[in-house]
Structures are given as structure tokens and as C-alpha cells.
Write a protein that binds this DNA or RNA. Sequence first.
DNA 1: GACCTAGAGCTTTTT
DNA 2: GCTCTAGGTC
Length: 724
Amino acid sequence: MDLSTMNKEQLEAIKTTEGPLLIMAGAGSGKTRVLTHRVAYLLDEKQVPSYNILAITFTNKAAREMRDRVDKIIAEDASKMWISTFHAMCVRILRRDISYLGYDTSFSILDPLDQQSVVKDILKTRNLDTKQHNPRSILSVISNYKNQLIKPEQAIAEAGGFQDELYSEIYKDYQEILYRNSSLDFDDLIMLTIELFHKEPNVLNYYQTRFQYVHVDEYQDTNHAQYQLVQMIAAKYRNICVVGDSDQSIYKFRGADIQNILNFEEDYPEAKVIKLEENYRSTKTILDAANAVIDNNTERKPKNLRSNKGDGVKIEVNVSFSEREEGHRVVEKVQQLSEDYSYGDMAVLYRANAQSRAVEDAFVKSSIPYKMVGGTKFYSRMEIKDLMSYLKVIQNPFDDISFQRIINVPKRGIGTKTIDKLRAHAEQLNSSIYDAIRDADFLGIPAKTVAKLMTLLGVLDNLKEKSKYMTMTDLVDEVLADTGYHDMLSSDKTLEARSRLENLEEFKTVTKEFDNEYPIADDNLFNFLSEMALVSDQDGMDDTAGVTMMTMHASKGLEFKVIFIIGLEEGIFPSRRVQFDDQELEEERRLMYVALTRAMDQLILSRAESRMLYGKTESNMVSRFLSEIPEELLESSGSVSRMGENSANTGTSFSRGPKKRARVINTNKGTKFNVGDKVSHKAFGEGIISQVKGEGDNEELDIVFKTAGPKRLLANYAPLEKKD
DNA sequence: GACCTAGAGCTTTTT
DNA sequence: GCTCTAGGTC
């Protein structure tokens, strides 16, 4: 193993294997490198069996990357080492032993939409209005309880005030429903693992003994429950290595407690603390800007991040008239920079997903390849959710939440009345809808409907059998065929239905991947569903070359040669909601810090004088974060003028400087598009127009592409050709 | 029970 | 602008 390229602090961090260790790793200081080399050092030099090592990350991507890198550094077999996310780790632990807590080992994992429908059901039963009691805020209250390891009984006992009392009661209902459904939400995974450890000391002891070396990445993002979990596992050997940067703590809203990292030295008085302050990523200009911004935060430990590189170029600041012009300018700059950089070297960051639209439009118009992280969520599409619900019910028949989703999809003539009766009966039995159906005869449900229910049960039981000896891909085909779902879509001739079918096809690439990895086994469906529950859209297949678009949150841990940050306006970033809360404002500033430090070579910052959001036009002042960057690091380009809206058809270029060149973007002026027309697009290939909206320059076409799926394009600008 | 329409609400970030 | 819900009609 070669450690010759490490600096003094990095080396120390790698070689300090015994006892508690806190690595304060500034942005771009080679944190991941240190962590992977440390693990490799344990395996290779210290001859620690891989079986005794645990490394916890927050994202699947980080976990995967770490394993890949470790495998590359050393020859030892590291396969017995656990490198996983908090949630995946807990699923693994609970899967073995959750029966101690009375749950079924074939539990389902709820996604946020499922959670919402549970809360809505509770509100309905309690005759409460969803307008007065927002399900999302109730869920966040529940999530907070769980992150704080507060059980419903305790929440109720300690509640003060009407709303507290009500919400803690709802929390209780919620947990009972989940229990009845053998379902866990994300927070349960952590909370119940801790409960299991408390209840069954031998289980805890097993993991404590096994994991002699514990690593936690992004420690500043841990919430209280995760913190507790780590403490429990590491208590026996106290070889705990945590890595983090308090300046990059941006997940307070989901319970992250920055105190966990700040108090590490109190938790472990014998702890060694190593600071990594040498930045290998960014130019001095970028770092100076980032340091200047973060320096405005009062609640932080001072840190001195040094650049290893030269000054580099100045930071470009663009002011546009509208958000559309802002998008155009990003694209122009991308085109200009594409002479020196590949598209994959560039990323556009924004505060909220809603901001991506204008930029996306501009990319589409100019046929520049891009990929969006997050945003349009593949897994929350209706047809994918339906399919997943079928699979979940097959795996876990007690999963009423999923069952209710599919009981009448496709339409089987099973309506709300029948479902209500079944639900009431299920509650009486303290069981599930699935079980209640067996008594359907006695519930005053019409015989015809009973027959339909029985048919459905038969189909599901049959599929359960099939799941034991089929590949996931085959099983998905069987589900779609046996339940009539495929027929429902194929008999519907609308383009929407066609695109849904295509999405289901697309889904099979995921199952095929799974099938390649795992041989057929009777618990494959469980494993597949667990894996699916824990992947986010972000883990997706993003190997294709293109400019990356994502939220600043999603950018944490990544780096790009060129970073665009758009929407630097008060009210957008920092968000309107936090403008008067100092603590939250500091969190936003840390987000700015994260965004700035993603850049290696160049930063391009922009804002718009007015922007349309949610159908309303608003004007915002310049973001304080932009003002906090020292003037001498900046270079303003482009004055405020009315350009952008029509520039494409005149061929005007926004870019200034030597590389300026006129570029005529496709224009379809004069072409009349109608619904049903077949077209071909430069980048997306063939498609059919499903809708035409607007007029003139604003005419929009909804097109369903054969391979690229549905898109909305501007008729006059998209590189489209009408066919036959 | 299925389908349609109008209206209202909501838009921060996510494993 | 988009999504979900409620209410009405067939």
C-alpha cells in the first residue's frame, strides 16, 4: 500500500487505528481518500479481519465508492467488511432479529408517500381536516420524535398544549398501524434497531464484539438516534473513527445534530483530534471566496483551509433579466467552456428543484446533453408505485397500505364501500385487509364483489409461489400479466399509457441488474424490495456524459471542474423561510459554502432581477451570500439588459470575450405541429406529439419519445423535424 | 362505483 | 404551474 502521497496529518489519521479518533476534514481535504486508506491499512498492515470492520456512510453512492476504492488499494479480501448506509445496516440487523420486537421478519419499508397516506387515513378516522392539520408537518413531528427516540407513550405523557397532545396521539395511531401492517418507515429502522439492542443484550453484544473498528462518515449529519446507535456499537472497543466537517452540516431539517461532532471530545475524553486543512481541490480564488462567506457564521470552530493550487480565474457573476435569460446564459457559458471541458466536468446547482426548469428548457433548446439528479422521480411515478405495491403485497400480505393502492387497480369493481368494510373488519380482527377478505362473505359485501376479491387473492397467492422460483424480471412480467395491469395499459391507446408501459419496461433494467447479482432464491423478493426502498433516484445510472443539474444539498461530497450556482437572490437563497432565523440562516450559509467548495477550477454565479415561480413573477434583491464574497475575487460579466427571450432566433450570443461566436440554434418557425405528428429530435430520437399548448414563441409541445420518454419542448426552438 | 370538473393548496432540502 | 381532493352526475 502506497502512502507516500499523503501529508503529515493524513498519514497520522490513517495510522491512528486504536481508540477514538475525530477527523475534522475540511472541504476537498482528501477525506474519502483518508478513510479508505485507513480501512485498507487496518486490513493490510494490521491484519485485522475484514469481518471486524464497520464503515457507515449516508448515501449508497458513498458506500459503493468506498468499497470499490478499498478493493483497489489492497489485495486482501474485504468482502466480510460491512460498508453500508445507516439504513441498510439496520435493515440487515433487523432482518435477522426483529421478531424479538414482535414484528414480522418480512416487514415492508414505507416510502414518504405511503407515510402520508397513513397519516391521511388517521386524520379521516379522527374526523380531522387535512387543511388544518397538514399531513406533512405531522409526519415531520413524528419523525422528530423518532429521531429523539421518544416513544408514543412518552410523547403523550410529555405533551403540552392541544396540538402536542393531538399529534402525539396521532403518532401512537401511526405506530400501531405500521405495526399491524408489518411496516417500518425510515426512522423506525434506526429507532427499532436501538430498541432491539436494549431489549436483547446478546444481540447487541454480538455486533459489539464483531465490529471492533467502527467508522462513521459525514458525522456532522448524524441525528440523535444515529448517534446513539453508533455509541452502542462502539462501546465495547471504543475504536471509533468519525469524519466530518461542521461547516458542511446542512441537514438540520431532518434531524441532524451538529452537536454530535462538536461534543465528540467530551464523549470520548481520550479522543485524538486531527484536522485536515489542506485543500487539494479548488483554486485559491474559490477557497478565498468560500472562506470569506463561511466566516460570517458565528457558531463555528475556526478553521484555516489552505489551497494547494494557484489563484486560478476569477469568479464570474451574471445578472439576468429573468430566470429564462439566466438559463440561456448558463447554456451559453457551457457552450463556451465546452472547448476546454467536457460536459461531465460541469454542474449547475440550485436551492430548490423548482428552479431547474428554466435551465432545463435552455439545455433542451440547444441540444446540450444534461442529466438531472433528483427532480422527476422515477420511483414515484404512478405505474412504478403500483408495481412496487403489488410486489410488496406479495411479499408482505399484511401491508394494507400497499394493498389499498392496488386492490382496485386495474378496476375490478371494488370500491370505497367494500374497502371500508374490509378495513373495519381488519381492525376488529386486529389484522390485515388480506385476512379480512377471507371473511368477506359475512360483511355484507355483494356476492359478485366477493368473487372478485377471491379471484384477486388467488392471483396474489399464486404470485407469491412464483416469487420463490423466478427471477425478479420474470416475476415482474408475471405480476403485470396476471393482475391485468399490462392489459389495462396496452388497451389504453393514449400516449400517456404508452409512456407508462415504457417506464415499466425501463424498470426491468433494475430487476435485470438484481438478477445478475443474485441467484434465484426464495427470499429474493424481500431482498429486492429492501434494496429498492433504500435507493434514491440519485443512485441512478448516471454514467452518461452531460452537464449535471442538482440541488446544492445533493452536491455534497461531489466535485466538478466548473460549478454554476444560480438564483443568488434573497428569498430564494437564502430561502424566504429562514430569513429571520439566525440559526437557520447559518445553515443556509453552510449550504453556500458546500456549493462553492464543489468547484475545482471555475465558479459562475448568477441571479435574475425578476423570476417567475409558481406562476407568479417576483423581484428579489441580491443574495447576501453573494455580497459576502470579496469584490476583488469577482468579475461581472454582462450588464442587465433585455436579452435572452428572443435571442435564439436572431443567433445572438451572450458570451463575451475572445471566444464569442454566433451560433444559430435550430428554428422551426413556420412549421405547424399537431397532436399525433411524428417527429424526430436531435438528441431524443423519435417521438409523437401528445399535446400542443400556447402560441408563437411560447408554443409548447408535449412529446413522448420512444427512448427518452415524455418531454415538453418549445416548438420554435427545439431541434425537431417533422416526419412524413 | 366510475368518471368528470372545479377549486384549493402548495412549493426547501432527503436517507 | 402542478397535484390532490371534494363534490356532483351518470
